[in-house]
Every structure is written in structure tokens, then in C-alpha cells.
Design a protein around this nucleic acid. Structure first.
Length: 565
RNA sequence: UGGGGUGUCGUCAAGUGGUAAGACACGGGCCUUUGGAGCCCGCAUUCGGAGGUUCGAAUCCUCCCACCCCAGCCA
């Protein structure tokens, strides 16, 4: 694998792990991906998933899937299903190693009891507001709770009664007894258990007290024998607390290593902001193809291979960064270039009549499914007198470097014939071009020229009488500005990019696309990669989502030609 | 004004005292029955800043600056 080959391309986490293995600090590697089942996974999670699962595989270890389900009011079974589906889709298999923090509730309770017995935890009757007030500030130390010095016996009794449901929700908490003057706020007697009468999706009504995340995560890692607990930067401050629990409890000590989470240009990554987009109706649900969610990317046409390639290319480090969306798109193009069958589709049809092609004649022409991969075979595509080409492929008054069709100009129809534009039909009122008249050269059948003459352009086309109708959805960046406001709240309030979705109706696709399987991927030649939409495609009308466009050199030339202003 | 982090090309990112990898993007060329793909070339005399140590520093020392995280009974 990558980690063992190459010299300079190992990230700091793998460097640490290799040292630990070499020193025999650990003989094996156990990692985990620990999502909270309260939302859908996005590309940022994919970074963590790939990191944890790949490391386990590279070093001959294992990776657990563990749901950190310690807050029943926010978590739901449906998220567990979607998370499992997404991890599986990415191509990872956790085998039997599917765990739940809630499976450890009994043990966690015993851990808490142990802390109380050691005089390291106490039941506190302060209200939430009072606790906050007693905590102090960033610069001022906190004050001890008046309940801090209760005896172990009293604490044990109270804690048991908390568990037994004798007290009202929120009336008391169990706190670790550490140091109210610590400059690290996490060490100022943090709450480790709260009373919460909420039905848990897995343990039902068995518990009315729940451990906090801080009291759960590290110990769950310990219980599972996680050697390297990889998490995001914001937990750096919590590490001393987790270490304190582990030491007090005298249990296996996993090593936490923090890395920077993924940010991407022109989108947002936080669950809250994504939820805002969904709830405000600015997008069409979690799997809207514009969303950076895994279900959104999947529906858009992203492949797990492309996502994994992306995750391996972005690297892992501690500095916070924003990766350019162009890299993600590049990964998809690279993957799909090899695998997507090529087809013809005309998004904005312009009628072309081949004047010298016999009225009632039609024929079939062989097309390669992939010009660089003969193994993908070929197909027959019908040709006839009336065709459609792309509106953009004709200019009555062509600018410099425009290689496509124009009056008097000859171009090649892909795999078909050379045609020359001999006339333009226009609407008398508007002057809009309605159809083109062309002549074809029968000697160029298949697209080659026996006399060796060259044409500068090759156009895609469909036969009007044979083509199928389709709806095509073109997607652009969710937000128009690169810094999409991972940092500021107003960013989400800003509307999504008005050009993020463009729906094209009346598109014409070659007949082989009739009945294309939902989810299947194609390259529309000269346009981009498209995925048959799994939700809205019907028997009568296929819907195609543009996963990513092809690199468009002409667009760049045009842009360069634009008068600057 | 407390604590914890981070600062290397437009964007990611290697480099850990021996004289700045790679990728994306960008620019140029070749090739081409996708203006696609592929191929070739170019792209940081410089590593947040200023001093210092050293024959030699992005790497060590000092000071300074900028940015991020922390005051949930969220995770």
C-alpha cells in the first residue's frame, strides 16, 4: 500500500503509528470510525473513514464502526442505517466489529462508581446556569461547587438514586472532581452524567441517566482496545481530560491523535448548516446532488473510487485548510474517463437537415463505446436525413478559433459524415436560427476522408426520428464564493448559487439510452459525465444528472477573448 | 489579559541541519474522428516576520505577528 512504499509521502499519523509498532508500544493497530447517529455522512466524514479503515488495513489491524450514541434526544435509528449504507458504499467492511457506546452504558456506570469511590467524582445539585457561573471564564478561575466535598457514601447513594429515577431531569449531575482553577476549562470539574428521561433508540427506557460524550468516548476506545484514536482538532483540549479518566480508572490507554477536518471550497460541511439548507428548502433534501453528503454525491454520479482517491490525495495534517473543489472533480473525471461508456446526447437541440441525403433513407453506423478501450465494444447508431446538433456548435458569425459549424463551413459528425452548412432557416419575426441545411459527403462515411482533407471540428449529433427525449440537470457549485462560510454564520444565510441547478428539458439522446438503468454512468461525448437519476427517472422520461463536465478548452478560449471589464 | 493548536507556490502538501518533493489549478507545446483523454515543458533564489547560532537553517535558539479552538447537563 501507499504507506509502505514511497519515502516522503507519509502523513504524520502514519509516521507515529510506524514508530509505535517499531518500538513495540503496540503490536497491532486498532482504529475506529465513531459517528454520532444524528445526521447524514458527508465528504468530510469520508476523510475520517478512509483514514481509519486504510490505516487498519495498511498495518494489518482492524477498524471498528462505533456509534457514539450518548444523546438519545438527538439520535435516531434511521441515521444508523444511512451511515452503514454510506460506509459500505465507500467500500469498507467492518465485519462483526459494529459497536455502540450504548452497549457500554453498564460499564460506564461502573466506571463512574469507581471514580466516586476514589473520591474523584461527586453529585452536584447546582443548576446548569450555576455550573456555568461557577466555571469561571477563559481568564478567571472557577469556584468550587458547594457540593464538591460530599462523602463517597453520600455520592454513591445519590448517584444510584439518580439512576433509579428518583430525581427530576436536570436536577443533579455527576461531576469529575479535578481542578476548578485549571487553565483548561475541560478540567474544571466537567459533568460526566446527566439525568435525562428520553427513550434511547437502542436501550429504550432502561436508563434515565446518560454519560456525556467526554465521559464516554475515551473509555469506549479503551474498552475496544483502540490503539490510535484519530479525531479532529477541536478535541485537542479534551485529551488531558480523557487521559485523566483513563489514569484514574486504570484501564487501557488509547493514544489520541488529532488532525484537521476537511473543508471544501464552494460548499459547507457542518451538519447544522447542511440541515439549514434542507429545512429552508434551498436544496431538495439530503441527497440533493449539490450536497456534499455522501448520498448527494452518490446521486450526483460520484463513484466511491473517486471519493477514496480524493481522500488519499488531500493528505492528513494539523493545519486547517480548504481544499479546492477542482481536485474532487478531477478525481471523478479521472475515474470516469476510464470506465464510462461514451454516448451521444444533445442538450440544446438545433435541427439539421441534410439536403442531399435521400428523404426516406436511414442507416446505422458503428460507434465505439470507448475509443481507448476496445474491450468495451461497439454499438450501432441510426443516422437519417434530419438530425439534431448542439445549438452551441453553430455560429452564424463565428469568432476566431471557433472550429465548429458555420455557414459554408465543413465539420465532421462523429463517426458519421462530413457535412457542410449551406443554409440557415430563421424565424422571420425574431431572426432566431430554427434549422440548418447541410450537405453531406457520402465518401466520408464513418468520419474519415479518403482524400485526406481535414476538418477542424467534430460534432456530436442524434437522429431526430430515432432519438429519445430526456431531462438533463446541470449542477454548479452550491455557493458561488470559494470561502463558503465555514467560518461565518452569515454564509449559510446567503442564498445558494442561483446557477447551482439548471434543468434542461427537451434534450435528445441516442436511442441506446432508452431504459438506461438508474444510477448508471455515461460520458456524453464532448459534454461531461452523467448519471441516470435514481429518484426521478421514469419509464417514459430518463433524467440525467451531470456529475462533472469535461474539461472545456473552448470555454477557456472564449473567456480569454472576452473584453475585460 | 488564561490554555491548547497552526503558519512552506493560487489551493492542498512533503521536508525534522546539507542547500525547497508531488498533486490540483494555471500557462505553453505535441497529438487527437470527443476543443475529451494522453504526452512534454514551465510554474516558491524561498519557507508568517525580525534577529541569532552554524561552514551551512524551512528545519536549532530568541522575540514578535497572524489565524483557529475552548467558558453545552452537544458531539
Amino acid at each position: 500500500m501507499d504507506a509502505s512504499e514511497g519515502s516522503g509521502r507519509k502523513d504524520f499519523i502514519r509516521t507515529i503509528i510506524e514508530a509505535d509498532l517499531k518500538n513495540h508500544k503496540h503490536e497491532t493497530v486498532v482504529t475506529r470510525f465513531p459517528p454520532e447517529p444524528n445526521g447524514y455522512l458527508h465528504i468530510g466524514h469520508a476523510k475520517a473513514i478512509c483514514l481509519n479503515f486504510n490505516i487498519a488495513e495498511e498495518y494489518g489491524g482492524v477498524c471498528n464502526l462505533r456509534f457514539d450514541d450518548t444523546n438519545p434526544v438527538r439520535e435516531e435509528e434511521k441515521y444508523i442505517q444511512s451511515i452503514k449504507e454510506d460506509v459500505r458504499w465507500l467500500g469498507y467492511d467492518w465485519g462483526e466489529r459494529e459497536f455502540y457506546a450504548s452497549d457500554y452504558f453498564e460499564r460506564l456506570y461502573q466506571f463512574a462508581v469507581k471514580l466516586i469511590q476514589k473520591g474523584k467524582a461527586y453529585v452536584c445539585d447546582l443548576t446548569a446556569e450555576e455550573i456555568r457561573e461557577y466555571r469561571g471564564t477563559l481568564t478567571a478561575p472557577g469556584r468550587n461547587s458547594p457540593y464538591r466535598d460530599r462523602s463517597a457514601e453520600e455520592n454513591l447513594d445519590l448517584f444510584e438514586r439518580m439512576k433509579n429515577g428518583e430525581f427530576a431531569d436536570g436536577s443533579r449531575v455527576l461531576r469529575a472532581k479535578i481542578d476548578m482553577a485549571s487553565p483548561n476549562l475541560n478540567l474544571r470539574d466537567p459533568v460526566i452524567y446527566r439525568i435525562l428521561r428520553a427513550r434511547h433508540h437502542r436501550t429504550g427506557d432502561k436508563w434515565c441517566i446518560y454519560p456525556t460524550y467526554d465521559f464516554t468516548h475515551g473509555q469506549s476506545d479503551s474498552i475496544e482496545g483502540i490503539t490510535h484514536s484519530l479525531c479532529s482538532l477541536e478535541f485537542e483540549d479534551h485529551r488531558p481530560l480523557y487521559d485523566w479518566f483513563i489514569e484514574q480508572l486504570e484501564i487501557f490507554h488509547p493514544q489520541q491523535i488529532e488532525f484537521a477536518r476537511l473543508n471544501l471550497t464552494n460548499t459547507v460541511m457542518s451538519k447544522r448548516k447542511l440541515l439549514d439548507l434542507v429545512q429552508s428548502g434551498q436544496v431538495d433534501g439530503w441527497d440533493d446532488p449539490r450536497m456534499p453528503t455522501l448520498c448527494g454525491l452518490r446521486r450526483r454520479g460520484y463513484t466511491p473510487e473517486a471519493v477514496r482517491d480524493f481522500c488519499s490525495r488531500i493528505g492528513v495534517a494539523k493545519r486547517e485548510s480548504v481544499v479546492n473543489m477542482a481536485l474532487l472533480e478531477h478525481c471523478l473525471r479521472q475515474d470516469l474517463n476510464d470506465r464510462a461508456p461514451r454516448v451521444m446526447a444533445v442538450l440544446n437541440p438545433l435541427k439539421v437537415i441534410i439536403d442531399n441525403y435521400p428523404q426516406d433513407q436511414e442507416e446505422t453506423l458503428p460507434f465505439q463505446n470507448h475509443p481507448e478501450d476496445p474491450d468495451m465494444g461497439s454499438r450501432e447508431v441510426p443516422f437519417s436525413r434530419v438530425l439534431y446538433i448542439e445549438k452551441d456548435d453553430f455560429r452564424e458569425d463565428p469568432p476566431k478559433k471557433f472550429f465548429r459549424l458555420a455557414p459554408g463551413r465543413e465539420v465532421r459528425l462523429r463517426y458519421a459524415y462530413y457535412i457542410t452548412c449551406v443554409g440557415v432557416d430563421k424565424d422571420e419575426q425574431t431572426g432566431e436560427v430554427e434549422a440548418l441545411h447541410c450537405t453531406y459527403d457520402p465518401a466520408t462515411r464513418g468520419g474519415g476522408s479518403p482524400d485526406g482533407r481535414k476538418v477542424k471540428g467534430t460534432l456530436h449529433w442524434v437522429s431526430a426520428a430515432h432519438a429519445a427525449e430526456a431531462e438533463v440537470r446541470l449542477y454548479g457549485p452550491l455557493f458561488s464564493e470559494p470561502e463558503s462560510g465555514e467560518k461565518t454564520d452569515k454564509a449559510v444565510k446567503r442564498e445558494v448559487n442561483p446557477d447551482s441547478l439548471q434543468v434542461l428539458t427537451g434534450c435528445r439522446v441516442e436511442p441506446s439510452l432508452k431504459g438506461a438503468a438508474p444510477g448508471s454512468l455515461y460520458q456524453f461525448e464532448r459534454i461531461g459525465y452523467f448519471c441516470v437519476d435514481v429518484k426521478d427517472t421514469t419509464d417514459r422520461l430518463p433524467v440525467f444528472n451531470r456529475a462533472v463536465s469535461l474539461r472545456d478548452t473552448w470555454a477557456r478560449i472564449q473567456k480569454a477573448q472576452e473584453p475585460k471589464g
